[in-house]
Amino acid sequence: MDQLLQHLRSLGFTEMESKIMVHLSKEGASSGYEVSKRLGASRSNVYAVLQRLHARGILCCSDSEPAKYTMLPADEFTLIISNHVQESLGYVEQAMPKQKTSSPEFATLQGDRPIMEILAKEIATAEYEIIIDLCSEEASLFHDVLKDAEERGVRLLWSCDAGNGENNPFFGWHPFTDQETPSLFKGRTFSFIIDRKWSLLGSRGNETDTIGLVTEHPVMIRLLLGYFAQELIMYELEQDLGPEIQSRYGPHYEQIWNKYR
């Protein structure tokens, strides 16, 4: 009995409500006077509880004089409680204020070792795709970890400078003069996008410190994906229309770039 009363109280019923429901389930139809006498409770309190439970649809009340109350069958009673709980849970889920999420952060790393370590860790957890844009000097550094990823089914998409000294037409425009170029831009650039949700981009070599920027910011991911897509498009166009493009716009699209220098 005590355990039953405890479970009813955990469902939100008061101690008196729980005792009256259990009593009516056991004894059957009873008047308020009979309930108060058997439970040893004040008649006014018992009548107030009976009316409250009746209003909630948990008790049935006869039209006789005196009125007699009966408890719903257990399966009907528990169904009502279950529906109320589900309705409340649904409302709480929709109405509860959402916790503000912090904006994606940017982390700066310096030096080959920390960059290689975090990159190896992320590549090891890649699920379906790694997009790589780097120079041949850096490609060898990541050969082993990328090979492992490919062997477990991760798709690798490359944009790699062959190291023959030729400029990619897409990089034809240099917005800084030699005197204005920040140290960040003096090295060879590289970037990785893993599963289209994590990215690392940076520069290395040419007597500058290796530096990298790590972020999951969706805007940066979108920019890098767009940059990579443009390189693919430019490559395809050059393969199909190379001489025609050079004839019309000059080597490395100089006639276009010069408009915006």
Results as ranks from 00 to 15, higher is better:
Arg38His: 13
Tyr260Ser: 01
Asn206Ser: 14
Ser103His: 00
Gly90His: 03
Glu27Gly: 00
Arg261Gly: 09
Arg38Trp: 08
Asp178Ala: 12
Tyr128Gly: 14
His7Ala: 14
Gly153Thr: 01
Lys26Val: 03
Leu24Cys: 06
Gly172Gln: 00
Thr101Leu: 09
Thr14Glu: 07
Tyr235Gln: 10
Ser102Lys: 00
Ala41His: 04
His143Lys: 06
His174Ala: 12
Ser44Asp: 14
Glu76Met: 05
Met234Gln: 10
Ser42Gln: 14
Pro251Ile: 15
Pro251Thr: 15
Gln239Met: 14
Glu65Lys: 10
Met71Val: 05
Arg113Lys: 14
Ile256Val: 15
Glu93Cys: 02
Thr108Pro: 02
Arg52Leu: 00
Asp161Ser: 11
Leu232Ala: 12
Glu244Tyr: 14
Arg152Ser: 03
Ile115Met: 07
Trp257Cys: 04
Glu65Leu: 01
Ser42Pro: 11
Asp209Phe: 04
Asn206Cys: 12
Ser62Pro: 03
Gln179Cys: 10
Leu156Thr: 08
Arg9Thr: 09
Ile245Arg: 15
Val154Thr: 12
Ile221Cys: 12
Phe228Gln: 12
Val22Ala: 05
Ser103Glu: 11
Gly32His: 04
Leu201Ile: 11
Asp75Asn: 08
Asn164Leu: 13
Leu146Met: 06
Leu146Arg: 07
Lys19Val: 08
Ser30Gly: 00
Leu11Ala: 14
Glu87Asp: 05
Arg196Ala: 05
Glu34Phe: 00
Asp148Phe: 00
Glu122Gly: 01
Asp2Ser: 15
Arg248Leu: 12
Pro104Asp: 02
Gln51Tyr: 15
Trp158Asp: 12
Leu224Cys: 11
Met71Trp: 00
Ser25Cys: 07
Ile211Asp: 04
Met116Gly: 00
Ser31Gly: 10
Lys197Phe: 06
Met21His: 02
Leu39Phe: 09
Ala126His: 05
Asn45Ile: 02
His54Tyr: 09
Tyr128Asp: 15
Asp144Trp: 01
Phe13Gly: 02
Trp158His: 15
Pro175His: 11
Asp161Pro: 06
Leu141Pro: 01
Pro218Ile: 04
Glu254Phe: 10
Ser102Thr: 02
Leu241Val: 12
Asp2Val: 15
His217Gly: 11
Lys37Glu: 14
Thr215Asn: 06
Gly226Arg: 08
Ala107Gln: 15
Ile115Leu: 11
Glu17Gln: 03
Ile81Pro: 00
Thr108Gly: 10
Val22Gln: 07
Val46Gln: 01
Ser88Tyr: 09
Ala41Trp: 05
Ala48Cys: 05
Leu200Gly: 07
Leu72Pro: 01
Ser103Pro: 06
Val46Pro: 07
Leu8Ser: 11
Phe176Tyr: 14
Leu8Trp: 13
Ala41Gly: 05
Leu200Asn: 06
Glu254Met: 13
Ser18Asp: 12
Asn168Lys: 10
Gln99His: 05
Glu122Asn: 11
Asp133Ala: 06
Arg38Glu: 15
Tyr227Leu: 08
Thr101Ser: 12
Leu156Met: 08
Pro243Tyr: 09
Glu238Thr: 09
Met234Gly: 08
Lys186Gln: 09
Leu157Ile: 04
Tyr33Phe: 14
Ser103Gln: 11
Leu237Ser: 03
Pro182Ala: 08
Ala229Pro: 00
Pro97Trp: 08
Asp75Ala: 05
Leu79Cys: 07
Leu241Asn: 06
Leu72Met: 07
Ala95Arg: 04
Lys68Met: 09
Lys26Gly: 01
Ala124Asn: 01
Ser10Pro: 06
